[in-house]
Write a protein that binds this DNA or RNA. Structure first.
Lengths: 225, 225
DNA sequence: TTCCTGTATCTTGCATACGGACTGGAGATC
DNA sequence: GATCTCCAGTCCGTATGCAAGATACAGGAA
């Protein structure tokens, strides 16, 4: 018998969650913005129940903050937050890369090259949002091939924030995107060559430079509602 | 004016979540056991809504599995699961210890000693459940003092599973608890002396030995409902 | 003016109702 | 006896209603 498996239609909760997540990550909403369950449910054309459940999930991903009886707000990171997030992210990514290299070097490399191509395409296309998305995909590759689901889950738990910061706080600095591309190229090269130490240091520099940029923007206070 | 701040009564969701979590972690429920939202809500004396929300949170902690339209089940780890979990746990704990040592050595050491004392008390008292709980607290200390909330969150995301395995899969092997105590003592000593490399290797041995024990029990198949 | 207070209106927390999807078993059919 | 079909029971997904806390603001008292 052929494989006739049908995919289940997504639940409303899943749809709402994805929609809201995209709205936050793609900067359709401002950091700190107030969200009302009722307003959202009306805007989305569903009842409050799935909205509420989706918001609860997003809270666990750190994308919104729910204050009892007051309201729900898009997350608003402090400088310290961003710093800790970067440190944590570096820890996860470096570990994931280590696992990738020892367990699934070939497939991981191929996927990284694909993602890199997508980044180049986005850069050529000139859309900052597309570039940020491709960047996100690139880093997700590490976790798809690391062979440890818990590592991947942990990353998923912060990837929303990372991606959101990328979109909200990235400023089109002179040559910034070019430097980012160059670093990604270097990472792929180091990975292909199996130079783990180099890879670590590039990744560290890459993430910490991003942190600098974010911190600058945060200090300038331009992103608050 | 004196400080008269009142603590907010916990929400029903939080209460239900904690209650269910304890029930799973303390092995009041069997691994793989079926949970019905309605049955739970009746047993707990609340409506399905908070139960449902609590179950969703527990799913994100990996303590239950929700199958759409079918039911909710207490998690049932495979041998592979446990292996990946141990690897991941070692990664997190070793990183947390590193941060503790460089940022909050004194307080962390004090807290570890307290936890150790509690473990000894539990051992003297002879309750396996109390010992397992104290063990859990000991390892949580690392994350309370590591100064990185994301690291702590990531641990919270798996600590339920870790704690549950401790209770479900630990068998009172000859001298097992004594060996565990000895290892914890060694860890505290190494931490106090600032011997990070030793600490790492003790921790690694400690976790991997636990893994061995769990795997044995899993293979024997005694824990399934 | 300044401060307090009552109230209108917002928010979420929780309970409940209904319908669709799944499961297991009794009975019919071959 | 084996297999199919139908049906009742159970579960979840979603919508809706009500209660209670939080907030903002108008209006009165000092």
């Amino acid at each position: 018998m052929p494989d006739l498996k049908v995919e289940q239609p997504k639940s409303l909760v899943a749809i709402v969650e994805e929609r809201l997540r995209n709205a936050i990550v793609d900067a359709e909403m401002r950091l700190g913005e107030t969200l009302s369950e009722e307003a959202l449910s009306e805007a989305l054309g569903v009842s409050r129940t799935p909205v509420r459940e989706a918001l609860a999930r997003l809270q666990l991903q750190g994308l919104v903050t729910i204050v009892p009886k007051k309201g729900t707000f898009v997350f608003a990171p402090t400088e310290e937050d961003v710093s800790e997030l970067c440190v944590f992210r570096y820890m996860l990514e470096t570990q994931a890369l280590r696992e990738c290299m020892s367990k699934a070097r070939g497939p991981a490399l191929a996927a990284m090259k694909d993602a890199l191509a997508a980044m180049e395409a986005a850069q050529a296309g000139g859309s900052r949002r597309d570039y940020a998305r491709a960047d996100t995909v690139f880093h997700e590759v590490f976790f798809q091939h690391c062979g440890n689901r818990y590592l991947g889950n942990a990353y998923r738990g912060v990837s929303g924030r990372v991606a959101a910061l990328r979109t909200h706080l990235s400023v089109p600095l002179e040559g910034e995107q070019e430097r980012s591309m160059a670093e990604h190229h270097l990472m792929v090269e180091a990975f292909a060559a199996g130079r783990l130490a180099d890879l670590d240091s590039i990744l560290h520099r890459h993430i910490m430079r991003a942190w600098d940029a974010y911190a600058d923007v945060l200090r300038s206070g331009e992103v608050r509602g």
